[in-house]
Design a binder for these strands. Sequence first.
DNA 1: TCGCACATGTAACGCGTTACATGATTAC
DNA 2: GTAATCATGTAACGCGTTACATGTGCGA
Lengths: 183, 183
Amino acid sequence: MAKENKTQYAILGMLSIAPMSGYDIRATIKKSTANFWAESDGQLYPALAMLTKQGLVVCAAAKDCGARGKKLYCLTQQGRQALQTWLELPPENQSIRNELLLKLFFGANLSSSMNQERLALYRYQLKIQLNDLLMTQQDLQRRFPDSTHLPYWLMSLRYGIRLTEAKLAWCETEIEHLKRLEQ
Amino acid sequence: MAKENKTQYAILGMLSIAPMSGYDIRATIKKSTANFWAESDGQLYPALAMLTKQGLVVCAAAKDCGARGKKLYCLTQQGRQALQTWLELPPENQSIRNELLLKLFFGANLSSSMNQERLALYRYQLKIQLNDLLMTQQDLQRRFPDSTHLPYWLMSLRYGIRLTEAKLAWCETEIEHLKRLEQ
DNA sequence: TCGCACATGTAACGCGTTACATGATTAC
DNA sequence: GTAATCATGTAACGCGTTACATGTGCGA
């Protein structure tokens, strides 16, 4: 009835790259997939516990967990299989909800300058985002030059870069549009 | 604690354009904001009922509702004020979850051809989307040449067009990338 | 010794989707 | 008459966010 939990697959995918702790997964997601995938703590840890119970991941013995009680998780054969099965399915497209766009769609209810300010703020945020993405790109290429994952990581990064550039260009032209409209 | 219900504002916004029934709102959302905002039936009608109870919208008397029991809703002064207040707040950005991108991020677990097929299918879907957007653009300009809303509707449309074009261009280059990688 | 980053979790809350349910009107 | 579209709702379900709770180890 309701949608299937995708958090588990994000976790399995991350563990297919390397064994990690919950904290590592969280950090990796924030660093590398933040542009197209987010997870919240409240999902991550329960999902890890469930995957363990289902035998899709195993937690290294407490001994090997290093300091600070870090729990290192590994994919099991079943886990790898479950990931594979999911990866091969066609991706479902989530419903989109972009509040900025919705507010602009109703922009006739606001002053033109209000809308311009909104766009200008967005442009500013996009510039920062773009910069981050470009830095991450360099960073990845330097740190994992030989990883089999690198081409795919760069692919998803370029998606972010392209989209952010397109949004920026859109912002510029729309601000100009509004300025001209005022006169 | 949890997030505020945004459906109500989408409804108020739609009613700021013209009085509408629930069915009309639904149809309008599907036609015009589908690219950045979606609503499901299960949210729409209860939200309308709640807005009525709160006095933010009123339902025209049953008499005036036309055939088929259609209920025509109008904004009240309070409703207009509530919309205004919300519009002026900075937009919150929803967390993004793009399953296609996540699957590509883990693409090293699949064959190169599988990833290529995935991208090719996406490219096909994007072309259709782009076409729809361009048609809608013409349609809007023809049907509402003098509406104060038109500039903002076109703005949100151009966002969709720009983004879709960027995604398409990205698709093309990535398919080429993968082809070259295979050799 | 004080604060920050590391590290793992739980509970409340309600949003949003899906599926179900129902009936009228129009067009062929 | 019968299918499609118009039209309005309800109920189940669980996903995902936010806030809370707790403790460790390292560096300044």
